Computed example of a mutant assay.
Amino acid sequence: MWCERCKQRPATVHVTKIVNNHKTESHLCATCAQESGIDPGKELGFLFEPNFSFHNLLASLLEHEFGPESAFSPYQAAIEKCSSCGLTFTDFRNIGLLGCGDCYQAFGRSLGPLFQRIHGHVNHTGKVPKRTGGKVRIKKEIEDLRRRLQEAIRREAYEEAAQIRDEIRAKEEKLNKE
């Protein structure tokens, strides 16, 4: 196979790029590869575009969620900031990192849809280690059922509350047996 560029020397450098399910291949000689910015003596491994970063990935998710401008007006995005670290929402969009734990409160209404999109839910559910024998999982289920019980009582849905109460008792008995 001859070099696609000069068509005078054998192709010794083969580069395959796949972008959006579109595959392009280049077959170059060492000289043409070097002129193209590819070092033929170095193993290429995985190449990313020079402007690829996880911050850019997060920023693109934010842009998709809120549009090219933020959900706020540009003026409000610049003045809305965290009271602890001073980070503005615009700064967060540019760097892709929150400044401190209080930023979650400051930007909560804008972060909610982003977390929903990335994780599928807004609340942290955590993971349960398998070696605990399921006790932690059962305790978590009981905690969730108690929360549902309080909500049912608040809505005055007493039949539903009674069913939830019975579920809690059954899980507590199961927990005590283990």
Results as ranks from 00 to 15, higher is better:
P40W: 02
S84D: 14
I18Y: 00
V13P: 01
N20P: 00
G45H: 02
N176M: 08
A106Q: 07
A162K: 11
G101Y: 10
C32Q: 02
K177T: 12
S53A: 11
C82E: 02
E156V: 01
L149N: 10
L97K: 15
V19R: 01
A33H: 00
L61E: 13
N56V: 12
E178Q: 15
G41W: 08
G45F: 02
Q105N: 13
R9T: 06
Y104K: 03
T88K: 01
G41T: 11
E167S: 10
L111R: 00
N20K: 04
T12K: 07
G101E: 08
G120N: 04
A152Y: 06
T16W: 00
Y158M: 10
H64P: 03
C6Q: 14
P68I: 03
R9Q: 12
R117K: 15
Q150H: 14
G86Y: 06
I18C: 00
I164Q: 06
P40L: 06
G37R: 02
K127W: 05
A170C: 03
G99A: 06
D102K: 11
E160F: 03
C85R: 03
K42P: 05
E43P: 15
S83C: 07
V13K: 00
K140F: 04
A77S: 15
L97V: 07
R93M: 10
I168N: 08
R154N: 15
D102F: 11
P74N: 07
S60L: 07
A152P: 05
L149H: 15
T88W: 04
R5T: 11
E141F: 02
H124C: 03
S73A: 10
F72M: 13
F52A: 09
L61C: 15
R93H: 13
E151N: 13
P10N: 03
V19F: 07
W2L: 15
R109Q: 13
Q116L: 12
D102A: 14
F92P: 01
V136K: 15
Y104I: 11
E35P: 02
I95V: 13
P113H: 07
E65H: 05
M1T: 09
F92C: 01
F89N: 00
E172I: 07
K81T: 06
L98P: 00
L44C: 08
K139M: 12
C85Y: 08
K139T: 05
F46S: 05
A77N: 06
R165M: 07
D39W: 03
R146W: 12
K81S: 14
F107K: 07
R137T: 08
K177E: 12
E159D: 10
A71Y: 12
S60F: 08
E167M: 06
R93G: 09
F92I: 01
H119P: 05
A106S: 15
K17A: 01
D91Y: 09
A78G: 01
R137L: 08
S26I: 03
G96P: 07
E156F: 02
G67Y: 04
Q8C: 02
H22K: 06
K7N: 11
N20L: 04
D166M: 04
